[in-house]
Amino acid sequence: MHKSTVGRYLLYLLLIILAALFLVPVYVMVITSFKGLKEITLDQMWHLPAKLDFSGYKEAYAKLVPSLRNSFLLAIPATVLSSLLGSMNGYVLSKWTFRGSNVLFALMLFGMFIPYQSVLIPLIQFMQSIHLYNSIPGLVLVHIVYGLPICTLMFRNFYVGIPTEMLEAARIDGTGFFGIYRRIMLPLSISGFVVVGIWQFTSVWNEFLFAVTLTTQKQQPIMVALQNLSGSQIVQWNVQMAGALLAALPTLLVYVLLSRYFVRGLLAGSIKG
């Protein structure tokens, strides 16, 4: 237990250096985004901007605002609906197990590990045939379905911790399946909803493959728009960095405000809760 003071200082020094290294990309992103056209030369990359210039933000914002809007219209309903469905599934699979329910659960979980490339071609044909191709509601549907496994897993692991005795007591009082869900499970799962909600919102917001294959132009979510912005050679670095920051801001804000819940979601994603 008795570590020398020198060792302690070294530990802190190392931690500070590592933390600084981790923040380097953020530093570069922030300073570049506030630079004017004259300052974004290659040799001045690490310099702080001489004065704050918002032209990068103005241009990035003008280009990205429709897709930012799309992403909110996509991520919020997808998050709410897949959390609700996941909660119901988790309730059934933890407290109302039936013959074969474990196998069913395992088959469901497989869905969260598959490379989505392996469903993409039929998915596009299917979305076209139900006239939801190239639409935000179509993407919402896709994210709900492929979000079901992880949401179910998280809620199931959460509900396993609620003592079954509580449910049995309620049953004796004549409370049924839905009564127990509403009066016992739901009030106890507020933090579960926060964890799953943050996880889903972040994943849907950050997702790219479905977005780039299922939508074009006006319906594109933010990550596709950002990729197009940075992919075009004529866009300046300050605009790209401002765009990257704007695209990252919603999930970063959620993280800064609710990091405790975010980390719990991170750990819950690894099967054993």
Binding site: V28, S230, W237
Partner: peptide, 29 residues
Amino acid sequence: FRNVFIFPMALSFIVTGVVWQWVLNPTTG
């Protein structure tokens, strides 16, 4: 410190790609 080390997890791979392209650009960065 914990939060600093975990925050990149909240970012999209697209954002990471765009920023690191700039950080590791061979003529600068």
